[in-house]
Design a protein around this nucleic acid. Structure first.
Ligand SMILES: NC(=O)c1ccc[n+]([C@@H]2O[C@H](COP(=O)([O-])OP(=O)(O)OC[C@H]3O[C@@H](n4cnc5c(N)ncnc54)[C@H](O)[C@@H]3O)[C@@H](O)[C@H]2O)c1
Ligand SMILES: NC(=O)c1ccc[n+]([C@@H]2O[C@H](COP(=O)([O-])OP(=O)(O)OC[C@H]3O[C@@H](n4cnc5c(N)ncnc54)[C@H](O)[C@@H]3O)[C@@H](O)[C@H]2O)c1
Lengths: 204, 204
DNA sequence: CTTTGTTTGTGAATGTGAGCACAAATACCA
DNA sequence: TGGTATTTGTGCTCACATTCACAAACAAAG
């Protein structure tokens, strides 16, 4: 295929593909066709083929995609072939749920630090990991932490973002219901749970 | 404007607009221009104007949009002008965080029931609300609960979905990392937190 | 009442992504 | 070796979404 910019939507789907391929491996499946995979994921099969073909041809015609090799390739594309460390800011209700979640490790994602500004929480542990004071944000760079999960109250989100960017953070998963304006351009993914629930009644 | 189908993307943004207008009301602002609002939300101003214009003209040229009236109108469009009750299935780490979250009420969303199948949890309380056994799913219809938040392990998600649909649920916010196949067509919104975090390294 | 400045509402243009349809490639069998 | 059944990879078309650009509407001031 001649060169074309890779759609953001394709990137957005890759982790889903990766999870499916990982699961197939545990089922000892060697190959899977785009049709079968589409069936599982609720997509159209040309969608999957096109998505994967952006990164070269790694299926076999008449057979399908090799599970092991394709998983490895997707991990490589997403830069998830080595462990990526993340910091959680805000050890509140949502934050602690995330830290305890074992599902990140299958993507090679590791919440390696937790920061909060509540003196009563600092020093306490969530599982194996100790909550640190927010001022330790400046140590993130040398600890090789480049991703952040932002789970602080909305009022604190903008200021925290500025500090994160100063600390060399390159990507932020923002769970607070507000628009962040980073000083330098940084990839930000917003997840607004309440808004999402608020959409549902419209479709009833 | 002549009739045109309302884009899903427009609907997706309405809760954001609603939140912004609600906030403006607390700031005692009477009107706001699309430019100012766009600035706050990180959008383009024509985007906002077009979105709102799908539902008729309710701004004033030269002035902007009336905060109070527009908020009311958006609530009406999203069917959030009356309280919408939701059930949470799965009182685990993520589920309890959601139940405790006060931010739903500003959308008139109310988590009115919590179900789990763990005998140790049934009967316990999360804040003011008692955890019920999963078999009580059949009582949801007569309790006027039409929305569900699904926060059970992935293995249980499909079976639970089938039961929810049987129980008359019309919309599901799915937090488990798998694709659901409802027996009848029902609006499902998937939020896959781990996948979202998994996207970030690509953009570094 | 007219002029000036502002902001909406919207047709048109542009951009982006999804889905179709089919040639090319491979496996398998007779 | 030739024929049949699959399934990939991809150009093309269509659908959807965003952005532009400007006329129409309104406020305020002189
Ligand atoms: N809990 C949910 O289900 C839910 C749902 C939707 C959105 N959210 C959003 O997620 C965010 C967190 O929600 P939560 O329910 O966990 O809130 P929470 O109040 O339980 O936790 C917030 C945590 O952030 C800490 N904090 C406050 N200011 C800080 C700062 N400047 N620096 C570092 N830490 C700080 C607090 O000490 C607290 O531990 C909020 O923005 C909320 O709107 C939460
Ligand atoms: N915790 C997170 O941060 C996080 C992040 C991403 C995705 N998720 C997803 O959200 C879902 C819930 O995650 P969690 O961390 O809260 O898990 P959890 O194990 O803490 O909680 C799951 C709860 O569901 C209950 N349950 C199990 N089977 C059930 C059934 N058939 N009917 C009713 N209840 C049942 C369990 O008793 C438990 O209380 C999972 O699918 C998980 O993959 C969670």
């Amino acid at each position: 295929m001649k060169y074309r910019k890779i759609p953001d939507e394709t990137i957005r789907r890759l982790p889903m593909y990766l999870r499916a391929f990982s699961l197939l491996r545990t089922e000892a499946t060697e190959t899977i066709s785009s049709r079968q995979l589409a069936q599982r994921l609720g997509l159209n099969s040309p969608q999957i083929r096109k998505d994967l073909s952006y990164f070269g041809a790694f299926g076999t015609r008449g057979v399908g995609y090799p599970v092991e090799a394709t998983a490895r390739r997707i991990r490589q594309i997403l830069k998830l072939n080595k462990v990526q460390k993340a910091v959680l800011i805000g050890a509140g209700r949502l934050g602690t749920a995330l830290v305890a979640y074992p599902g990140f490790s299958s993507f090679n994602l590791d919440i390696a630090a937790v920061l909060d500004n509540d003196p009563k929480k600092i020093g306490k542990k969530i599982g194996p990991i100790k909550i640190e004071n927010t001022d330790r944000i400046s140590t993130l760079k040398k600890r090789d932490i480049r991703l952040a999960i932002l789970a602080v109250p909305a009022e604190a989100a903008q200021k925290t973002t500025e500090n994160l960017v100063k600390a060399g953070i390159r990507g932020i998963l923002n769970l607070s219901p507000c628009h962040l304006k980073p000083a330098r351009p940084v990839k930000i993914i917003d997840i607004d749970l309440a808004s999402q629930l608020g959409i549902l009644p419209y479709y009833m």
